[in-house]
Amino acid sequence: MPQDVDFSIPLPARRSPDHARAEAEHIDWPRSFGLITGEAAAERHRKGGYADLASRFYPSAIGADLDLGVDLMSWFFLFDDLFDGPRGEDPVQAKQLTDAVAAALEGPLPASAPLIAHGFADVWRRTCQGMSKEWCTRSAQHWRHYFQGYVDEAHGRRDETPCGSAREYLAMRRHTIGVQPTVDLAEATGHFEVPHRVFDSAVMSAMLRIAVDVNLMLNDIASLEKEEARGEQNNMVLILMREHGWPKSRSIAHMQDEVRVRLEEFLLLESILPKVCDSFSLTADEREAVERYRLDAVRPVIRGSYDWHRSSGRYDAEFALAAGRQGFLEELGSAR
């Protein structure tokens, strides 16, 4: 994120006390699945700071719980990079890969599945350990929305029909930003579950929607230069420029205002959560789960995203130019 673009995030910065160990070991998992081969690819992955991101998203997690979060972050960005080339402009290719990965939600994968699918299958298996069947069903549905978002984006790129409004863009991008599965994992790493009846409440849904929107706006500003360079048209800054005829600076200022307004609403929603718990007659244990969700899942995904975007090397100009990158990415997305 450009250092001169500041967002005042009224939430405390937190990071897992186990972050140094996780950082030192986090290349082991993607290497074990063939997702990273060679020191150049490992160094490029380290530069992204994905272990740091997980440590901020799951600040109360340590040990194997934090490792699961780190592995998910590694997987997320390796998967996302697969759509930077031709696959991201071809709905058929995009659906072939997303279907191959999503198959892990249903059961064991064939040995011939793409490397990236086997990596996801491992993360999903570990995620569901100790969680209820109802929770796994809920989280699996969030993953399906995430995968479908890549196909929808590919349709837009193929047809060269950029989103005409910020509202239209938000509706699509809310899936591919991947915030909902990220927040879900906080329940798994924290070994608790928000009661389904309150999870779907208007207040909780609004809090999650704010977390998603803030994340995608932070990400769009951070990735603006990279996306402009490759001709991407669906970035909120660029959409606001087209929609309103604004210069880039005003579009960014508008997004800063949008984040501020959303976070003011978020704090208001937080303040009425106890009344929401009362209205659902939650038990003491259920109330504790809701409070942990607020403190260890939703808040960290907002503040953690902000802090990581400001420190990650993922959006440096040279990051996407690593030698041999595209050929290796094609291998990750191909059947074995």
Rank of each mutant, 00 (worst) to 15 (best):
R287H: 07
Q129R: 09
Y293M: 12
A140Y: 02
E228T: 08
H254R: 12
Y315C: 06
P108W: 09
A13E: 15
A102Q: 07
F77G: 02
Y50T: 00
V194I: 14
I210H: 00
I239V: 11
I27E: 01
V123K: 03
G156W: 09
D71I: 02
E134S: 12
E318T: 12
D6K: 12
L170S: 08
E288R: 14
N219M: 02
R303T: 13
E193L: 04
E187D: 12
R325Q: 12
P300Q: 06
P114T: 04
D307P: 00
V70R: 00
R242C: 05
F192P: 01
E232Q: 14
V261S: 13
M241I: 06
D257H: 14
R14E: 11
H142W: 07
V259T: 05
G245M: 12
R87Q: 06
A41C: 13
R125E: 14
D6G: 10
A188E: 00
S271N: 11
A166H: 04
E330R: 14
L97C: 03
R292F: 11
D184W: 03
F328R: 14
E153S: 07
S139G: 08
V301S: 15
R294N: 08
D65Y: 01
Q96P: 00
D6P: 09
D80A: 10
D159E: 13
A335W: 14
Y150K: 04
P2W: 01
G63N: 04
D6C: 11
I221L: 08
V298A: 06
V298R: 03
H155W: 15
K95P: 08
I9N: 08
L218K: 02
V151L: 04
L267N: 14
R314Q: 03
A289P: 05
A289T: 03
L218E: 06
I302D: 00
R262F: 05
P2Q: 06
L68G: 00
A323D: 15
P10G: 10
E232A: 06
P91V: 08
